[in-house]
Write a protein that binds this DNA or RNA. Structure first.
Lengths: 168, 168
DNA sequence: ACGTGACTTCAGAATTTTCTGAAAATTCGG
DNA sequence: CCGAATTTTCAGAAAATTCTGAAGTCACGT
């Protein structure tokens, strides 16, 4: 329990995986800071300090995280510096953002199907591809809906009997 | 319909998206060849020619696609060169391979939770993250199962009444 | 209004990734 | 087994990505 060293390692580890998942390196590390900080919100300067990175790099990273909707700017707290924090639905958002990838794959498959004859093996393969991504895209809304139900149920349970520690 | 130019564009477009999705550049372009070729199988040499890339680059790409399970080596067709083709379940496989990413995110979240006190805001954020990915991981098997049902049903329908053209 | 601190932008540097080319290894037909 | 064709490996080159540092812009507080 609670060792700063461990936290640092876990954060860097996470940043690595996020990078695999398509985020840029600095954006991933920044997101890790948002997750692991013990404050409610952080400023760009604090991120730079924590990551030992330049203000410029942090600026770009924060901007991209804002664009994707993973973090939000906090209503000015009277200070001169901007405060940011992780959004509550960040993970669902991150997941959803991959739908655009699926959409594009689908479009590419359809374009291929259209440019190909029915007896071409490519036509068959592209059709299989299209069918899969069509199916997937159709399933996602329901999946996210189930998540929202699931999570709101959790929140309720939490309020009613205040479990001291669940650990699941 | 059927314009080689269009096909080439669609293929390159797809390769781009696949790259976004985590595949290496050359692996993505190679996968596009497997999809769009009008042959049942292709050799490394043919891929290299099509992509105007070196044999070395193709070798690496094919190897990685084999490892992930997206393509398969064909039982020797009498020729000296190896023949490869896209596997039937390639897309489901590609999708599944992202589960490992989710697994790793989950582990990172759990590590963070363990290294943090219950009253730390980070603890709350990491718990939310863990819950989401736990949920997701739990949903995936059923999702893939539905896909298999779905696709086998399609195949059956195909065999029974031989639709001339569906276009969905 | 003005000074100051924070944020953004951007050119160039550093790093990382990716590809080529050639040599070594492998494999199949003879 | 030998030889030709193919594939694999790998060092170094090329390309793409990412970061820094500094200059410029903006906004707050006085």
């Amino acid at each position: 329990m609670n060792d700063k060293r461990e936290q640092w390692q876990a954060a860097e580890q996470l940043a690595l995986v996020l990078t695999e998942g398509g985020l840029q390196r600095m954006a991933a590390r920044t997101l890790a800071v948002f997750l692991f900080t013990d404050q409610e919100s952080v400023t760009a300067g604090e991120i730079a300090e924590r990551l030992e990175a330049s203000a410029g790099a942090v600026s770009g990273a924060v901007k991209s995280l804002l664009t994707v909707g993973l973090i939000e700017r906090l209503p000015a707290p009277g200070s001169r510096r901007e405060h940011y924090r992780l959004r509550d639905d960040a993970w669902a958002t991150l997941f959803t953002s991959q739908n655009t990838v699926i959409q594009t794959m689908l479009q590419a498959a359809r374009a291929g199907i259209d440019s190909t004859e029915a007896d071409d093996p490519a036509h068959r393969r592209l059709t299989q591809m299209r069918d899969f991504y069509e199916f997937l895209l159709g399933e996602l809304p329901a999946l996210l809906q189930r998540w929202h139900q699931h999570s709101s149920k959790e929140a309720k349970r939490w309020r009613l009997d205040s479990h001291p520690s669940t650990g699941h």
